[in-house]
């Protein structure tokens, strides 16, 4: 470990009864970077976060934050971290400002710094107008922002966000992404988990793909994409019937992946895109669009895990058929 390493995780294991939530996880996070833990539901992301934030003791292995062991030096770790869990943990009866003040207080901040810091965060997360309203009157997006603000009150150098944008609408999600980027620009080390490939791609400098309690791949987003090493042919058909017929017409080129009206094939099928078009023409089919593109994290995930990552409504909404990312 170097001075520049903020988080070290080594052979971390955790079992719940028979369920192996973590089956030996290793990764390191450099100071001042964003590390994304990407995986589907049940992969072990929350368990990893809870161990790193001293909420849960590990069964085996070791985890350190800023050089402090999360078990032996738990209190030292707690003085250096902020955490926003998977579900916004704010007191519905307290106002936004009172929620932040409470956290500042029990985070052992000096009294005179708490309120200015709370107001600064309320403004930054666009909650100033709602600062004196009980949090039970907040929308989901506002609660989530308050929750993240609470994680930041004590100005922790290391921040953990567990699925920060899950359940948010598109607008709130984009806003939150902008806010997270700003934090990182200030030097905060961030470990975030996500089921959204696009989120990891956008925010994280490095990604560990986790599935079944194991890290199955790690690298920068482009490294991960490069692992797939080949382009993808993506076809968009007029409707699902056509897409289904196209799948059968192309079955001699390997197994195309069918996703609604979209078909995907490896870019290196014999004959390439020309052969695809010829086969479709032969079946009396014509694609709306055909494109050959770089593999996405989606493709990487599918290849690594053998199953699809949960897709966000966001991706479905922002990736136009046949359009480039």
């Amino acid at each position: 470990m170097t001075d520049e390493t903020a988080i070290v995780v080594e052979s971390l294991t955790k079992k719940f009864g028979d369920v192996e939530a973590l089956a030996g996880v290793d990764f390191q996070v450099e100071s001042g970077t964003v590390f994304g833990l990407l995986g589907p539901n049940g992969a072990g992301k929350t368990t990893a976060i809870r161990i790193l934030t001293t909420i849960l003791p590990p069964d085996g292995g070791r985890a350190e934050v800023l050089g402090y062991d999360v078990v032996r030096d738990a209190q030292k770790v707690r003085l250096r971290i902020g955490m926003a869990g998977q579900f916004a943990a704010v007191d519905p009866l307290l106002t936004g400002r009172e929620n932040l003040r409470l956290v500042g207080k029990v985070a052992q901040m000096p009294n005179d710094l708490i309120l200015p810091r709370a107001d600064e965060l309320l403004e930054r997360f666009e909650l100033t107008d709602a600062a004196n309203r009980p949090a039970r009157t907040y929308s989901g997006g506002m609660r989530r922002r308050l929750d993240i603000a609470a994680a930041l009150v004590a100005r922790p150098p290391v921040l953990f966000l567990d699925e920060p944008t899950t359940g948010l609408d598109l607008h709130s999600r984009n806003e939150l992404w902008a806010m997270i980027k700003e934090l990182v620009a200030e030097g905060t080390t961030l470990l975030l988990t996500t089921q959204y490939l696009e989120e990891a791609d956008r925010l994280a400098g490095r990604i560990a793909v986790i599935d079944g309690g194991r890290v199955i791949a790690e690298g920068t987003p482009s490294e991960l994409k490069a692992k797939l090493g080949r382009s993808v042919i993506e076809l968009s058909m007029a409707d699902e019937t056509d897409a289904f017929r196209a799948e059968r017409a192309l079955s001699h080129l390997g197994r195309p992946e069918l996703d609604g009206t979209i078909l995907r094939l490896p870019g290196n099928v014999p004959g390439g895109a020309m052969e695809v078009l010829r086969a479709l023409d032969g079946a009396g089919l014509e694609p709306d669009t055909l494109m050959v593109r770089e593999p996405s994290l989606d493709d990487v995930f599918l290849q690594l895990t053998g199953h699809k990552a949960e897709r966000s409504e966001l991706e479905d909404a922002t990736v136009p058929v046949g359009g480039a990312r």
């Binding site: 001293t54 916004a88 943990a89 007191d91």
Partner: peptide
């Protein structure tokens, strides 16, 4: 989740 948050605080 309030208790979870409190557990992560010093």
């Amino acid at each position: 989740g309030m208790l979870e948050r409190f557990h992560s605080l010093p």
